[in-house]
Design a protein around this nucleic acid. Structure first.
Lengths: 200, 200
DNA sequence: CAGATTTCTTGCACACCGTGCAATCTTTCA
DNA sequence: TGAAAGATTGCACGGTGTGCAAGAAATCTG
């Protein structure tokens, strides 16, 4: 647990500056209209350097901290007596912390995305990168094979789906309800086997 | 219901030729190594024309027929007495017909994808394009609002997830079991509320 | 059938993306 | 303080995707 050191701190600074520049410019002009060159310029680094940190604008927007894989650890922290689904739900909720801690930024990010349908592919990819990790962690917990057995991949994919839908609603509802609550609601429906809703 | 006409037939021909060229070249060299220029050349049209039909290689590979939106109609065909989930499952299965009718092509397509992780973003996008349509159709059936209510978007997303996972397994299992059976199995798990699997 | 009209194709130009490579500068460590 | 490790940068290159305008082909009309 040695402290960061100048080198590491500088890297974090650059990454943060790039992520920030991306967000600001995207809010200002829309993601599509922003070029990597502009982002690099505002962050005070060269065009080329941008790609040392991110694979493209979308990643800079949506993964400002790089891909810290945290679901696995979170899942392992859960009480082994819990059913997988419940354990996974709690592990996922722990991840949602990031949103609560940085609400204003995420509100902006989602607004940018809502206005940038072209960005969808990359966005989804970024979401699905984590899915693999989630599936692995679930397989570990259930003692199954992530490639052979259905359950781990299915649950991971479904959790991802629930997450995306919740995120969409969070934004659509004007952030009036906490993301965690919306996610919980979705998982409740899943746990109940997707019963037909009472139409009003 | 007038018959196609020369113009329309030619368009279909070009589209098919482009899709075919894409598949063949991708099988031969890998998707990443194939350029749009090569595809166009093999199909006997100009580079520029390719983009009149597809937005990129991935779409040419995965949507050879353009986006024929069929889920909505299929869902409307289902007995109104059925629960939504069951109706949606059947509508989805009707869609899977395409795979059975053209197994060999799809086997190749999936093999290409398995070897082309870079293509993931686009692939997912294409999958999610249909998801919107699915959500709309479900909302119509349940009499809900696709933007306000949770259920339609959630079920659509979850069905998409089940489909992708099934497709992955279909390929991983060497196509020994029909896709529809794998999909059914996944939906059964969903309908049961994702109970913890019996570990073996 | 001829001419007008609609629709598709094509070439050109252009801005941008993403990457390999090699030179250079900076931090770290011994 | 000098060598090793790591980051930044410029350069060059092939590829993508799009707007535009000219041309070719199919369709419609009288």
């Amino acid at each position: 647990m040695t402290e960061p050191g100048l080198r590491e701190r500088k890297k974090q600074g650059t990454r943060a500056a790039l992520a920030r520049a991306t967000l600001d410019l995207a809010v200002e002009h829309g993601l599509a209209a922003v070029t990597v060159e502009q982002i690099a310029a505002r962050a005070g680094v060269s065009y080329r350097t941008f790609f040392n940190y991110f694979s493209g604008k979308e990643e800079a927007l949506l993964r400002p901290d790089g891909g810290d894989a945290t679901f696995g650890p979170h899942l392992r922290d859960q009480d082994p007596a819990l059913p997988v689904l419940e354990a996974a739900r709690r592990a996922m909720r722990a991840q949602l912390q990031a949103f609560d801690e940085d609400q204003e930024s995420w509100r902006q990010r989602l607004a940018v995305l809502a206005a940038a349908p072209e960005a969808l592919p990359r966005v989804l990819e970024i979401g699905s990168t984590g899915e693999r990790e989630v599936a692995d962690a679930i397989a570990e917990r259930t003692g199954q094979d992530v490639d052979g057995d259905l359950y781990p991949a299915l649950l991971a994919a479904v959790l991802g789906a629930a997450f995306r839908v919740s995120l969409g609603r969070w934004h659509a509802l004007g952030e009036t309800r906490p993301l965690a609550a919306l996610f919980d609601e979705a998982v409740d429906v899943l746990a109940a086997g997707l019963p037909a809703p009472r139409t009003h």
